[in-house]
Write a protein that binds this DNA or RNA. Structure first.
Lengths: 164, 164
DNA sequence: TAGAGATGGTTGCAAATGAAACTAAAATGC
DNA sequence: GCATTTTAGTTTCATTTGCAACCATCTCTA
């Protein structure tokens, strides 16, 4: 892989005033999030055929009591379409159950089945281990700071839907 | 497990030992990266019909001399498929040019056309403005720390393709 | 110098995605 | 009470993605 190519495929000269891609925050965050998600996905995606939306729904339900799709969607940043699909998928596999709300038949409360909980419990230690490894790369202060910044920027970015 | 609510459909009681999604780094990063990318995309996507891969290729070429797809791909974290498509797209719109490498006819060197550069130059100030707004949310120290952590975690995550 | 791999890049196909249209059930207005 | 508008969730359709198979060319080795 290290073979130097015959002609110079140069990436020198980053113009000091140019917009250098690898200093560009949105880009860098995207790369990081991707690389990390991909690595994490290997933990559950391959073994349990669980997609990222699936996983989010599962994790959310595991920690709360019955919730509607809408509520889960808001909590996990998944739009209704993805929610609908994830829920359909998880239900078809017997991991969650729907109970139509008698007071409002449009919506249904979702809960994990024991099978669903079992899968979740299987995944958790792996997810936790994964997380631990990542956190271990940082000092507590770094981690704290990183976390804060993420929160701050997430909130701020959400307001950025204004035109420039 | 959580002895608390049986009836409450609320998301209180994050089990102290549970895997709370919104403390989960891969999830949070994903959300942040998405929100930010989406906001940014509004800057160029809508106006110039430029996709994210397109944009990365454009930005890379604008700052370097001729490069092959492979090199750009490596630099921008785009796989060959996306590269191929982005390049085809940009070429069809007259934003870049291919020059087959006479020494190795499999590959071609790509360069911006003047039209391509013009588009890039139009986008840059907007991108820069966008970036500035984000950075303005942080103190220089915060920014510096954030940047470092991203780099660190990106490098580390890349090594995480090991099974747990 | 003729295979037998590699490598840069493209393409086919199936799955994932997102916007918008749609359904059924509530809420609201009159 | 009945028509209008909202809302929760589903579905359709066009687009984007990613994997794997593929071509053309190059490299390496016998």
């Amino acid at each position: 892989m290290t073979s130097t190519s015959r002609t110079t495929p140069r990436l020198e000269t980053p113009p000091a005033d140019g917009l250098v891609l690898d200093r560009f925050l949105p880009y860098r965050l995207n790369v990081l999030a991707n690389v990390m998600s991909k690595a994490l996905a290997r933990v559950y995606s391959d073994r349990w055929r669980i997609s990222i939306p699936d996983w989010r729904v599962l994790a959310t339900l595991a920690e709360s009591e019955a919730m509607t799709q809408k509520a889960i969607g808001a909590h996990t940043h998944l739009d209704k379409t993805k929610m609908s699909r994830a829920v359909a998928h998880l239900e078809s596999r017997g991991f969650i159950e729907r109970t139509t709300n008698a007071n409002d038949k449009r919506e249904a409360f979702l809960t994990l089945t024991s099978a669903g909980r079992a899968v979740f419990e299987e995944i958790v230690p792996l997810a936790r281990e994964f997380h631990a490894r990542i956190e271990a790369q940082l000092t507590p202060e770094q981690l704290e700071a990183f976390d804060e910044t993420i929160t701050l920027l997430t909130v701020y970015s959400a307001t950025l839907n204004v035109d420039l």
